[in-house]
Amino acid sequence: MNTLVRSATAGLRLPLSQPHLGSALLLLAALLAPALIYPVFLMKFLCLALFACAFNLMLGFVGMLSFGHAAFLSTGGYVTGYLMINSGITPELGVLAGTAASALLGFLFGKLSVKREGIYFAMVTLALSQLVFFFYLQAPFTGGENGMQGIPRGHLFGLIDLSDNLAMYYFVLAVFLIGFGIIFRTIHSPFGQILTAIRENEPRAVSLGYNVRQYKLLAFVISAALAGMAGATKALVFELESLTDAHWHMSGEVVLMTLLGGMGTVFGPVVGAAILVAIATLFSGGELGNYIHIIMGFIFVTCVLAFRRGVVGEFGHFMHKNFPASGFGRPQ
């Protein structure tokens, strides 16, 4: 019976292989999206999606739950914001600087945390990110509770004015694609292969001569850097960086997005971010807005109990089970 399905799908083979075709369609949709959907909404989604993808590199592909990723998101935002306000550098350099700052912070966090396992790792990252939160609360340059306001978007390469929302959208899309590309490549690299081995059987990886801590550290730095890149870009989009990004709620929200979409899948966090942003926007206007946290909590519990694999994971599983030739849900 399987052979039947297989030959049927083989007959339908398009010149582009399926994953390439899918990616091309998605890219086309992304390019056309601002014609239909408000660009700021899309940009928020892309920033959070990148944030979730970066987080998922640790949770889904190393198997470590960080509960401190808000620190990297906010550090990217504050550093980029500060430089944009005070030094007048161009936005692409601003984003790079924010990314670098988060990478550095990620290195420090990682040095202190990656030798811990499971819940202890989560607790150390949480504690460290709380230190960062209190630092930003007190530091004069962040504007404390008011946030860092009036961050200019600047001119891309000194040429293109990003205060135009459409121009800004394509800049954010480019940043997202670069970040996503880095994650995708990392997962499918010689380094990613060792990460998989560590996740599958850590003692065995050690016995084969791999210094596991160093691999976890590098993964953590990459994850932190890209979370910083997301935060830096987000600060430019809203021309604002606030303590919300540094709060532990944000660290929790990224866990939610990732689990909702499907951890350990490449697209899961993107879908999770879309769902979360859509729900938040849907309810923010009406009187249900006050119950947003309860609604989120309800979704979270349902998701964790009923759809362990997340939206993308369940879909892949379904396709793999029923249409094995489709190539969906293969172990990545």
Binding site: R185, T186, H188, S189, P190, Q193, A197, L208, Y215, L218
Partner: peptide
């Protein structure tokens, strides 16, 4: 087996290369 062979390759930290 490849994971063990990779150990002596010196590319195990290369996250920018294709697998």
């Amino acid at each position: 087996v490849r994971i063990a062979l990779q150990q002596q390759q010196g590319n195990s930290f290369h996250f920018w290369k294709s697998a």
